[in-house]
């Protein structure tokens, strides 16, 4: 079973009176344990694609299947639960909750699991150690560097042991060295834990890390490389 599968998926946005076709008939499958990059220029539809795979949005046409489940059949609560259990997210601008410490941020997604407190605390600590940030657990996001913040975000995405981690331009807000390090970390976790990663980028330099690159242009997937 594929981690995620798109079948002839299109997505249109209404922009005033005109329609923007962000995706036009995209089909793809990502298998468990893959480390996939979605590449393309700005506006090519990368974020749209990741949002659909991440069950954050519905396609205008076509089918989205995540971990074997057809997204169209699920209501909002069921989609939320699916995200909570199967999917981790990493964002371009980290999106940490500013009032929570690094550790609490990592612990946050476990909130929707109903774990006992000690257990979720321990798991969060382990995830934070995994990204090498055990010693800044009590720091608030604004006390961390960009690279550290993105590491916290990675720990947060992985703490629930998801089948799929989606990272929309995870390195775009980082200098190239830090970006490299973040991708290395993701790759490392992909190898060690077998988690499927899909990340998007418009930076050709970071593509070298990917096992497979999906090239998007104007909402269409180019021949796989």
């Amino acid at each position: 079973m594929s981690s995620a599968r798109l079948e002839d998926v299109s997505k249109d946005y209404a922009l005033g009176r005109t329609q923007v076709s962000a995706l036009r008939g995209v089909s793809l499958a990502v298998e468990p344990g893959e480390f996939v990059a979605v590449a393309g220029p700005s506006g090519s539809g990368k974020s749209t694609l990741l949002n659909l795979v991440g069950c954050l949005d519905h396609p205008s046409a076509g089918r989205v299947v995540v971990d074997g489940r057809d997204v169209a059949a699920l209501d909002d609560d069921a989609l939320s639960d699916l995200r909570a259990q199967k999917i981790g997210f990493i964002f371009q601008s980290f999106n940490l909750i500013p009032v929570l410490s690094a550790l609490e941020n990592v612990e946050f997604p476990l909130l929707f699991r109903g774990l006992p407190r000690a257990q979720s605390r321990a798991r969060a600590e382990r995830a934070l150690d995994e990204v090498g940030l055990g010693d800044v657990a009590r720091h608030r996001p604004d006390e961390l560097s960009g690279g550290q913040r993105q590491r916290v975000a990675i720990a947060r995405a992985l703490v629930t042991a998801p089948v799929l981690v989606l990272a929309d331009e995870p390195t775009a807000n980082l200098d190239s060295k830090t970006g490299e390090a973040i991708l290395d970390l993701m790759l490392d976790l992909n190898r060690k834990q077998g988690t499927t990663f899909i990340f998007s980028t418009h930076d050709p330099k970071v593509l070298v890390h990917a096992q497979r690159v999906l090239r998007l242009a104007d909402g269409r997937l180019e021949a796989a490389s």
């Binding site: 991440g54 954050l56 939320s80 699916l82 995200r83 964002f91 946050f108 997604p109 929707f112």
Partner: peptide, 16 residues
């Protein structure tokens, strides 16, 4: 708003 989006992405239901 973006925090709400983030929390929802992490699996928070609407009620949460």
């Amino acid at each position: 708003t973006r925090e709400i989006g983030t929390v929802r992405a992490m699996g928070a239901r609407r009620g949460r």
